[in-house]
Design a protein around this nucleic acid. Structure first.
Length: 678
RNA sequence: GCCGGGAUAGCUCAGCUGGUUAGAGCGUCGGAAUCAUAAUCCGUAGGUCGGGGGUUCAAGUCCCUCUCCCGGUACCA
């Protein structure tokens, strides 16, 4: 076990244009929080850094689309996400943001240092320029006709219709997405970071990292094999850190370059707040500091190659000691995706379940080696069958026993039985094993070994049968219960990094001091023989089935909501004008038949007032064609037509869905077709 | 298309450089116990390790091939 070292731990900076979901937590935030809590218990010097990443086109775009200043966008997500971390007891020493002044200063200094060292190169490219706005247009700010498939609303960076990657210059009839005017081609000069020059140094450096996780090394080697390309580090954009050189008006530092510098800024701020303005230097300049970046796999290339190259280029800073990246956490087999609206948001889950239940369920299924799957049923099972049944129950049965048979006092132990000695030898071994796993970033193994202590504790209780001893040998019984209470203490220590709330509660029941708690105390519990116990608390209430089925329902609703909207904001509120965009009408089903070879499609011929329409609907698993003929349904009349299995569908019908159940929406009593619904 | 990763008990996952009868947790089933949030403890069953072929004394682990999933990247003159 590494002792008394200095650690600089960072968690990926969440991008401030969406709410964090539990995949983010499992990937990049819970592991470092566990790690940091453990390191502190082990006596190491640690700081834990994070903050919002608040620049870039996506945020500027959102600001334009919503018609509000960028500041309003980033405030919304910064504070919401910060609160989400607080709610999950993920406790950074500082949660900063890249929009603040100190960061602009630090990022500019970093840029200038590279510039003055002659590392940066410049290249001139053709780009689209809006004369009306007097500015260059970023890729996403341009739409036009796709040169490949002819789709008219292709974005500047890709065509959503055919999937082609595009450059804005390739678009036919390009238009500014902001004003609609036609941009002209103009030359723009940008700064580049010569990543290719660092290829060899990075290769050699990565090769020394034999203890890194295999998945991380694989990604790196893949990139190195392909060959690193120079990357532009400036953009023509308003929202960001201005390029600190003359004749570069309208240019900002590219967000990928500037964001990781946020780790440095946040460290500076942390020490400024402490009144130790120079304190950050021993973290970023001292070779003995271990810099550890916790991230998701999408960030590996930035943290394991690009940022280190930047740091190498700059020269003053230490390089990462480790980058323990995780894979992704899926939900019920589906990807969590902002744009698709699938996923479980932190702000929602914390309203429904306790911090420890969430932390445990996530920690037990961390995507350490590959993508893993989270389900609500799993959360329930983990809580009820493991937390409550094994850990919670052991503490409870012990405390209740002491309360009933020993006047709610910690019984005094008169002698150590051999079983008792063996028991705490076992605890000592487990404590070491858990520490080894945590040192190696094997959080799942560590957690499972901690739970094994609780299993063994229950076994000890069962085997010694204190409920019999109390009648036959009260002294021995006292020793057993004393042991069990000491085990509660041990459990409070080893679970402390994972379940901070439960740990506090146990220590409170035992009236043990929290202040100077040490990891090694787990094997040498500090309880006060003879003293009265605190109030007993149920650590993990059972999660009932209804609490789970409710969630399955909201998930599918959320997923359905985003099919049409594409609104990433997650707010979910619309105005009456938004609603008026949708024309709903009553339609009568004239004909209905199965679509051959399809799994769930029905083709319906509808009468809508004096019109007739054909739609295709995916409900044949729930309705037979003959069931629908003659029924009145609610139709979305102004839906853009589309083809399903080659058949045109000119609208969609409304249906209510819950789990596997589905019912079409109809009217309360008869009304002629064509009637508007609102 | 190319590169990389995945596919292991009902479920969620472990299985470094190939080596005894393939593991854990949960769930199942049977038993014991009754201090405890009907919570515990013991035991049982469950897998031709995605399909096929090969190397080897020996392969989940190496090689080839196929199928399916997930990333990345290229092309669609």
């Amino acid at each position: 076990m590494q002792k008394n070292s200095r650690y600089l731990v960072t968690a990926a900076l969440p991008y401030a244009n969406s709410f964090t979901h539990i995949g983010h937590i499992a990937g990049a935030y819970l592991p470092p929080d566990i790690y940091v809590r453990y390191r502190r218990l082990a006596g190491d010097e640690v700081i834990f850094i994070c903050g919002s990443d608040e620049h870039g086109t996506a945020i500027e775009m959102a600001s334009i689309q919503e018609g509000v200043p960028p500041q309003q966008i980033i405030d919304r997500y910064h504070f919401a996400n910060k609160k989400g971390f607080d709610d999950l007891k993920i406790e950074f020493d500082i949660y900063s943001r890249t929009s603040n002044e100190e960061h602009h200063k630090t990022a500019k200094e970093f840029f200038l240092t590279l510039y003055e060292k002659g590392i940066l190169t410049q290249k001139t490219d053709k780009q689209l320029f809006s004369e009306k706005e007097n500015r260059f247009l970023a890729d996403r700010f341009v739409t036009g006709t796709c040169p490949v498939c002819g789709y008219e609303n292709a974005r500047g960076d890709e065509c959503e219709n055919c999937g082609s990657n595009l450059s804005p210059l390739e678009l036919i009839n390009p238009k500014s997405k902001i004003t609609g005017d036609t941009p002209v081609v103009k030359e723009s000069t940008h700064f580049y970071f010569p990543l290719a020059d660092f290829q060899q140094k990075l290769d050699e450096w990565i090769n020394t990292k034999t203890d890194w996780k295999q998945n991380v090394l694989n990604y790196c080697k893949g990139w190195l094999k392909t060959g690193l390309k120079d990357r532009a580090i400036t953009r023509d954009l308003d929202w960001g850190v201005k390029v600190p050189l003359k004749d570069n008006e309208g240019k900002v530092i590219y967000v990928w370059f500037e964001a990781p510098i946020g780790y440095i800024t946040a460290t500076k701020e942390l020490f400024q707040n402490k009144g130790d303005a120079e304190g950050w230097k021993k973290y970023w300049f001292d070779e003995n500091t271990k810099l550890i970046h916790f991230i998701g796999k999408d960030n590996i290339v930035f943290h394991a190659l690009i940022f280190p190259a930047m740091l190498m280029g700059h020269g003053d800073y230490i390089l990462p000691y480790n980058v323990p990246a995780n894979e992704f956490l899926n939900i019920g087999g589906l990807k969590q995706s902002k744009s698709r609206g699938t996923g479980i948001l932190v702000k929602d889950i914390v309203e429904k379940f306790s911090v420890d239940s969430i932390r445990y369920a996530l920690a037990a299924t961390l995507p350490e080696n590959r993508d893993t799957d989270f389900t609500w049923e799993d959360l329930q099972a983990r809580n009820n069958n493991e937390l409550a049944a094994i850990l919670g129950n052991f503490v409870n049965r012990t405390v209740v026993f002491a309360k009933n048979k020993f006047e709610n006092k910690i019984p005094v132990r008169s002698s150590d039985s051999t079983e008792s000695v063996e028991l705490f030898n076992y605890v000592r071994n487990q404590t070491t094993l858990i520490a080894q796993n945590l040192d190696a970033f094997k959080f799942k193994d560590a957690l499972s070994e901690a739970m094994n202590i609780a299993r063994n504790a229950n076994k000890y209780f069962n085997d010694t049968e204190p409920w019999k001893l109390i009648k036959s040998d009260k002294d021995k019984c006292a020793a057993v219960i004393n042991d069990c209470l000491r085990l509660c203490f041990s459990l409070a220590v080893v679970f402390r990094p994972f379940l901070p709330d439960a740990s506090d509660k146990i220590l409170k029941i035992l009236k043990s001091s929290i202040a100077d708690l040490k990891w090694d105390d787990a094997a040498n519990p500090k309880i006060n023989d003879g003293e009265e116990l605190g109030e007993n608390i149920i650590l993990f209430p059972i999660i009932e089935d209804e609490q789970i089925s409710k969630n399955v329902k909201t998930d599918s609703n959320e997923a359905a909501n985003t099919q049409s909207g594409g609104d990433d904001s997650g707010i979910g509120l619309i105005t009456i004008d938004d609603f008026k965009k949708v024309v709903l009408k009553i339609a009568e089903v004239l004909e209905c038949e199965n679509v051959p070879n399809s799994k769930k499609l029905l083709k319906l011929r509808l009468k809508v007032g004096d019109k007739e329409k054909q739609i295709v609907s995916g409900i044949s698993e729930h309705y037979r064609p003959e069931d629908l003929i003659g029924k009145s349904i609610v139709l979305v009349d102004n839906l853009k037509p589309s083809k399903l299995m080659g058949i045109e569908s000119q609208g969609m019908l409304l249906a209510a869905k819950l789990g596997k159940e589905l019912r079409i929406v109809t009217t309360d009593g008869a009304i002629d077709s064509g009637a508007e619904v609102n």
